[in-house]
Amino acid sequence: MRLSPAASQRAAVAVMWTMTAATIGVLAFVILYVLARGLPHVTWEFLSRAPESMGRRGGIFPMIVGTLAVSGMGVLISAPIGVATAIYLTEYTRKGMLTTIIRFGADCLAGIPSIIFGLFGFVFFAVGLGMGLSILSGGLTLALMVLPTIIRTSEEAIRAVPQSFREVSFGLGCTRWQTVLFVVLRSALPGIGTGIVLSLGRSISETAAVMLTAGSAMGLPQSLFDSSRTLALHFYILAREGLPMSKAYATAAVLIVAMLGLNLLAYGLMKRFHAKAR
């Protein structure tokens, strides 16, 4: 039996919509599952106190600090490098051998698994350069890891700035650098910000790479040379050790809320970007 074109379209669309609905269902399930089990245990004490007896009791304050330190450092190092790379690729050079090599490097870097970044960060930063398992090692490793994302999003944002803006600026007797700094970057800033926020989200979620570079010390870090356990790693350890599930769920809920918040922020920035570039 052959289905008529219209009938086969109906069938195909039904199947694909079902799969799409299932995907949305999975997302909703994951988020609600974690929030429902975790949020009730997220109290002020939990957020503001140090863990006791390996995380069975107490809170996650040192891990919050550690996560912010490691991720923040990664993004702070990566953002200027990534934006400068994007400026070079878009404003200071033409398509050619050089840009092909740079893009290939960035694209490949984007595909390298986090465990490889972890191995590298361990031998290079922690052992080779003597930084030890520390916020510094972790931050530098993450910086390398999120660099391709920042390059790509910045490049897109910069390319979206109308060419005519540059012409006007040149026509008014401004140098290329002034034009880049005061016209192009100013217009591209929300778009670049979106990339940076998303990179921050990725660094916060990262586990394998920070495990091998920032270590898992539970104390409140005193300097960049201290080891510090991040939230994601803390959650992994709690979940694996089967320590009280309430603490694990609460930690996961904090992670999910942070992820949702950062995505919302990125969305807001993107909207502003499009409004500006109308």
């Binding site: 995907t23 949305i24 999975v26 997302l27 994951v30 988020i31 599952y33 974690v34 998303l198 989200g201 990725r202 916060i204 979620s205 990262e206 586990t207 994601a232 790693l233 959650f235 992994y236 979940a239 694990a248 996961a252 992670l255 999910i256 992820m259 949702l260 950062l262 995505n263 990125a266 969305y267």
Partner: peptide
């Protein structure tokens, strides 16, 4: 679109745990 972004944003440890 946000469905894709959020799915990509959930930490891998959370996926594993669930």
């Amino acid at each position: 679109k946000p469905v894709i972004e959020l799915l990509a944003g959930i930490p891998s440890v959370v996926y594993g745990f669930i």
